[in-house]
Design a binder for these strands. Structure first.
Lengths: 205, 205
DNA sequence: GACTCCAGATTGGTCAGACCATTATGGTCG
DNA sequence: CGACCATAATGGTCTGACCAATCTGGAGTC
């Protein structure tokens, strides 16, 4: 059971854990492979994924480097796509989706006291909405940027009051999805992201 | 010169050329590799890319299948992201971007009589705008869906009158970008895509 | 004839090792 | 001190093998 094919995710964890700052060079492929306990081909598979997502860049003969990341641009993309996801989710959701959304809300509520846990639950809730949108392009795009979001998110939910508001807003979004009200869901998500964005620009980094 | 690492692109061509319809199974990896004249590892690299983009799906023991494609969902994503790209391009463009945009317009004008050529030029023009946006996430996302767009696009520009209008609208967008007017560029792109979308739904497939 | 079940073949997933192409490094020479 | 070049380091590719999941077709049973 050790191998596990989530090489890309393990690599992202490795990048996130402050091990490698943007612009830094990663260890050589052969070294990383032994470090993660997989073959070099499997490792390269994971590296290729991150490379396609613009997270790292490889230069033959030189090495593999972590690319600088602009969270601002990423958030703007989110602000455009997530309201669409909410609208499609409201239009297409089935009972199973609804159940998962309720579970996500419960998870967020239970995690209210803990900023870290709450952030993770929040990310999962947003992912659930994207799933419910049943849009292949949206799912693909969000899978691509999910891990990057988790960072900006956990940093924003350090304030307990913000977490309470986020939970309220998310509850409203789910209510709109339950009611098959696409427009309301889109608007609610739009407002939610405006708030999150405001706190982001207020306290950068 | 034979190998060439654009395996993913060659695979997409192979898929596009009516060789493999959505839902169909691709040839086995070993066969495809010899057919394209690359090793199986390089081929798998390309397959992995398409798989990450949701274009194909692999099932161990069974085979690799071309995924069904919902152009509607893809177009909705475009409608959200391209206006953002236009706005950012207007805000951030430099002289070099402007030169490339003018070249794209000229290319479209020259290709007006030919639907196929015009479609290709149109795709390149949109890609140029995304480049000028200087947004890493946008560039990555559009690279992911660029080839899919090319299809819906060439089919929409069969009507000469539509091509003329598309050129006019694109000219207006570039003018807004030249004037550093982000709002105007966003609006113009939004309207342009509304028109394209209308003709799409009017004459599906 | 229809059904179940199983062995073999097919196919994607992974691994190991080697070689090639490009870049970086450090020493040598003028 | 600077230019140059052999060497090492590193990503890119190839080959062949084996593993794991799945499919296929025939034997056997009812």
């Amino acid at each position: 059971m050790p191998p596990r094919n989530h090489v890309a995710e393990r690599l992202r964890e490795l990048l996130s854990d402050e091990q490698v700052a943007p612009g830094d060079r990663l260890p050589p492929e052969r070294e990383l492979a032994t470090q993660l306990g997989v073959s070099r081909s499997s490792l390269r598979e994971g590296l290729r994924r991150l490379s396609d997502l613009g997270i790292i860049e490889s230069r033959q003969g030189s090495g593999t480097y972590r690319a600088p990341l602009d969270l601002g641009d990423l958030f703007e993309v989110r602000q455009r796509l997530e309201p669409l996801a909410a609208r499609l989710a409201a239009e297409r959701r089935d009972d199973h989706d609804l159940r998962r959304l309720d579970e996500s809300l419960a998870e967020m509520r239970a995690a209210l006291p803990d900023a870290q846990l709450f952030g993770a639950a929040d990310v999962r809730a947003h992912a659930t909405i994207v799933d419910a949108s049943a849009s292949v392009p949206l799912r693909v795009l969000f899978a691509a940027i999910a891990d990057l979001l988790s960072h900006s998110r956990t940093t924003t939910s350090t304030d307990a009051a913000l977490r309470v508001r986020a939970l309220e807003e998310m509850t409203a979004i789910v209510a709109a999805i339950r009611a098959h009200d696409g427009t309301a869901a889109e608007l609610a998500m739009h407002g939610h992201l405006e708030h999150v964005g405001a706190t982001l620009t207020a306290a950068p980094r």
